[in-house]
């Protein structure tokens, strides 16, 4: 065996094992149901509709939607979101205006109305459901991170 072939086999084995490991550690969504059987999905919950704006985890995060969007059409023909969030609509709806970044095209040019790449709002903004996440999120935001006193916390400054 050449060393190249040996390396390839080793890599393939590692990939195979890590897939198994992944499948095991991310089994929470389907529970203990074997792969060849279908799980009974949990019932859908209603969208949260508190209208209380949620905190953002980092400045560039698209804010989550604090209201229900059930039945809202966003298609080539109509955009229900813009009927409240467009610049001219916010006086009536009292909704926050789409920020200026929504008017930029990819070259940074500011357009007259929402940029095509920001037209389909739910690509980035999502409503919330009151559920217990099957996989915990251990994201730590920058303020929390800055407060952590690690062994090298002195060196960081």
């Amino acid at each position: 065996m050449t060393s190249k072939l040996r390396l390839t086999i080793a890599a393939a084995l590692m990939a195979a094992f890590s897939t198994v490991a992944l499948a095991q550690s991310f089994s929470a969504l389907r529970g203990s149901t074997p792969l060849n059987e279908e799980t009974t999905p949990p019932p859908l919950t209603p969208e949260m509709n508190t209208s209380v704006r949620e905190p953002r985890s980092y400045p560039e995060q698209p804010p989550v939607i604090p209201h229900s969007i059930e039945g809202y059409e966003v298609s080539r023909r109509a955009n229900k979101c813009l009927s409240c969030h467009a610049r001219t609509r916010i006086q009536e709806s009292q909704a926050p205006m789409i920020s200026v970044t929504h008017f930029f095209d990819r070259d940074g040019q500011t357009l007259a109305s929402v940029s095509p790449r920001r037209y389909f709002c739910t690509e980035c903004h999502v409503p919330q459901h009151n559920v217990r996440p099957p996989v915990e999120n251990d994201f730590v935001d920058i303020d929390t991170l800055l407060k952590v006193k690690g062994p090298d916390s002195g060196a960081r400054r």
């Binding site: 059409e73 023909r77 109509a78």
Partner: peptide
């Protein structure tokens, strides 16, 4: 508008821009 069916092209309907 549009609570019962899909909407038509709204680009010239006031309040939908």
């Amino acid at each position: 508008k549009g609570i019962a069916h899909h909407l038509p092209d709204m680009s010239n309907v006031p309040g939908w821009q």
